[in-house]
Amino acid sequence: MTETTTARRVAIVTGGSRGIGREVALRLAAEGQAVVIAYAGNQADADATVAQITAEGGSALAVRADVADEKAVLALFDAAEQEFGGVDVVVNSAGLMILNTVADFDLDALDRMHRTNIRGTFVVNQQAARRVREGGAVINVSSSQTRIATPTYAAYAASKGAVEAISLILARELRGRDITVNAVAPGPVATDLFLNGKDEATIERFAKMNPLERLGSPEDVAAVVSFLAGPGRWINGQTIFANGGVA
Score class of each variant (00 low, 15 high):
G57V: 11
G32E: 13
N117E: 03
G136E: 13
A80P: 10
E164L: 01
N125W: 00
V189E: 06
A62G: 10
A68H: 02
E134I: 06
A68L: 05
R64W: 00
L26D: 11
S17P: 02
A55E: 15
V10L: 04
T180V: 05
A38I: 05
F227E: 12
V138P: 06
V138Q: 15
N117I: 01
S159M: 03
D88H: 14
T5W: 06
L99G: 02
D45H: 09
T54P: 01
I179K: 07
T49R: 03
G86E: 07
R131N: 02
P218A: 12
I169H: 08
S17W: 02
A46E: 12
V87R: 04
A68D: 09
L212Y: 10
A149I: 07
D78P: 04
L110W: 15
N100T: 01
T152M: 06
V90Y: 00
A46H: 08
A79L: 09
G244A: 08
D104G: 02
V163M: 02
G85P: 09
I118Y: 02
D88A: 05
R22D: 12
E56P: 00
E200H: 02
K198W: 05
S144N: 14
T121G: 10
L26I: 08
G136L: 07
Q33V: 14
G19V: 07
D104V: 00
N236F: 00
E56N: 14
N125F: 00
A171H: 13
R133M: 07
T101D: 14
I148M: 09
D69S: 11
I179E: 12
G237D: 13
L99K: 05
Y39I: 13
Q43D: 15
R172M: 12
I12E: 05
G57C: 10
G95A: 05
I166C: 04
F194C: 04
R130K: 13
A65C: 12
T14S: 13
A157C: 04
M113H: 01
Y153I: 01
M97P: 00
Q145D: 15
G161W: 00
K160H: 01
R131Y: 01
M1S: 14
V124Y: 00
F227R: 07
V225F: 07
T5N: 13
G136I: 08
V181Q: 04
G230H: 05
L26T: 09
T54R: 14
N125M: 13
A48K: 06
A34N: 04
S144W: 03
R147G: 02
R9H: 08
D78T: 14
V102S: 10
A154N: 08
V50G: 07
V36F: 03
F77C: 08
V102Y: 07
A51P: 04
